[in-house]
Design a protein around this nucleic acid. Structure first.
Lengths: 205, 205
DNA sequence: GAATTGACATACGAAGTGTATGTGGATTAA
DNA sequence: TTAATCCACATACACTTCGTATGTCAATTC
């Protein structure tokens, strides 16, 4: 059984390294994570790492992309589930905020990621997520609901607000108590994009 | 002349080390900055560094505090110069956005700072700045101008929006063209805190 | 002016990254 | 089937860097 060919086996080592990277980077942070330990824990050596990912940053990029892509997908799904439009925008933001409560997300994506890989706005995964927000905003604009402001700028800042809210909640002493405050403040700021007062909750468009 | 006593001399070495730290951390980033080079450039050795700041992070903390304190002071001044109130809040945000165009601020405070020192909201300097925003918001609340939302949450997210806008502008290809878009989007989101439409520009309260 | 303190330099050890080279199993071709 | 080749990964090495432990000399104190 399972007579893996070379390509399949290489895929498996990549998966093992990324998984070990997620754990090590989340537990110790990027700088303190030893590639010797990390690879040994995956049953490999640094040789495998440098062959597959080039260097330590390469593994970090792969790890960040995996987590961030999952986040974008989940947020987009939340937005569509809420029926798009204004409610969808809020749901997207709320989904981001809640996801960033996970320590793995906070440490790898929010703290070390930008320092190691540079501005998140340049990451491919973040661009995907940004695109989703832009589309939601364009739909709202088509309905004439929002103010005449540059859409890309709005989308970027909205995502930024959500991430900031998330970091705050995550760092707070009593996260469950802080979460609703953060969500309310997020909705408050987000409503600034609307020409008129937001519709009551539960309305689709 | 200038017969410095020990305390004065020690202050000078601290200043020299912090200055060299600012330059090295801004140019190469925290991780790539060599303490050997850095101290040599200041005409000292690592001995002085570890005696004065404990370790590499200690120097980073001192550098970040210096820059961040200057930012908070400048932003607060901009807010008061604009006459406080709603205009003051916008001026504070705009000041932040413009300051973060400096590469030194971007690299040290916005990228490496959080990764090395942890959540910026916990830094003493950031707390000072946050306090300023909170006071501005409280004044607006006293006038009955803003929605009933947790003030601290609002202040944190507002500062976050400003920082995000700054990072975006700084990373953009054509910063002068992006800046007005970012400022407009910032005003747009900030206006979400108001119960009613914002007063036209130039009004004091 | 002798003793002591302390600010800083020097020397050392431990760890980690990246690269250059080696190796054994899988693939290909005759 | 078997010999040649390839390549994914392991091993070994060179280099840098941090943090500490120890030394030293000038400034203060008695």
């Amino acid at each position: 059984m399972a007579s893996q060919n070379r390509a399949e086996k290489m895929e498996e080592t990549r998966r093992k390294l990324i998984a070990a990277g997620r754990k090590a980077f989340a537990d110790k942070g990027f700088a303190a994570a030893s590639m010797d330990e990390l690879t040994a824990q995956a049953g490999l050596t640094r040789g495998a790492l440098y062959h597959n990912f080039g260097d330590k940053r390469g593994l970090m990029a792969a790890v960040v992309d995996q987590i961030d892509t999952a986040m974008a997908t989940k947020a987009q799904a939340a937005g569509q589930e809420a029926g798009g439009g204004w409610a969808g925008l809020l749901a997207e933001g709320a989904a981001y905020i809640e996801m960033a409560l996970e320590p793995e997300v906070q440490r790898i994506v929010l703290l070390d990621g930008p320092a190691v890989l540079g501005d998140p706005a340049q990451w491919p995964s973040q661009n995907r997520c940004l695109q989703a927000t832009i589309e939601t905003l364009l739909a709202l604009e088509a309905e004439g609901l929002i103010k005449p402001v540059d859409i890309e700028a709005l989308a970027r800042l909205l995502n930024g607000v959500a991430l900031n809210a998330a970091v705050w909640v995550a760092a707070s002493e009593d996260a469950p108590a802080t979460l609703p405050k953060a969500l309310a403040a997020f909705e408050c700021l987000a409503s600034g994009v609307l020409k008129t007062a937001p519709p009551p909750a539960g309305e689709t468009s």
